[in-house]
Computed example of a mutant assay.
Amino acid sequence: MDQIEFELDREHVELNQLLKLCGLCDSGGAGKAIVASGAVVVDGERELRKTCKIHAGQVVHVDGLEIRVVAPHG
């Protein structure tokens, strides 16, 4: 499984925007469609809320990719 470490530069990021920022889709709207399809798992639970707030420490899985959301380094 491929892994991405996403450094969060704010308190949270909406799930659909996270998918866009990680390059998994071209727009927030496309990110919403991926979430709505049931393809996204957050911390081991299927997530269908398109604008679910993702915080540092959470792990998102989609299409064989693991996205680890981390606090800023430094």
Rank of each mutant, 00 (worst) to 15 (best):
L65G: 00
A71M: 11
V35Y: 08
G29S: 13
G31N: 02
Q17T: 04
L24C: 05
I67D: 00
L21Q: 08
G44Y: 07
R49T: 11
C22S: 09
E5K: 04
L24F: 14
E5W: 02
T51F: 04
Q17M: 12
H12L: 05
C22M: 09
G28Y: 10
G64N: 12
G64S: 09
H55F: 14
E66A: 07
E14A: 14
V41E: 10
L21N: 04
R46Y: 11
D26G: 13
K53A: 06
V69W: 02
A36I: 05
L48P: 01
V70A: 12
V69L: 05
I34R: 00
V42M: 07
L18C: 07
D43S: 08
V41D: 07
R10T: 13
N16Q: 15
E14P: 00
K32Y: 06
V41G: 01
G31P: 01
E14N: 11
D2H: 14
M1N: 09
S37Y: 09
G44Q: 05
V13G: 02
K32G: 12
H12E: 10
V60D: 02
S37Q: 11
K50R: 15
Q58C: 02
V69P: 00
L48Y: 13
D63S: 10
P72E: 15
C52D: 03
V40Y: 06
F6W: 05
L15V: 06
L18M: 09
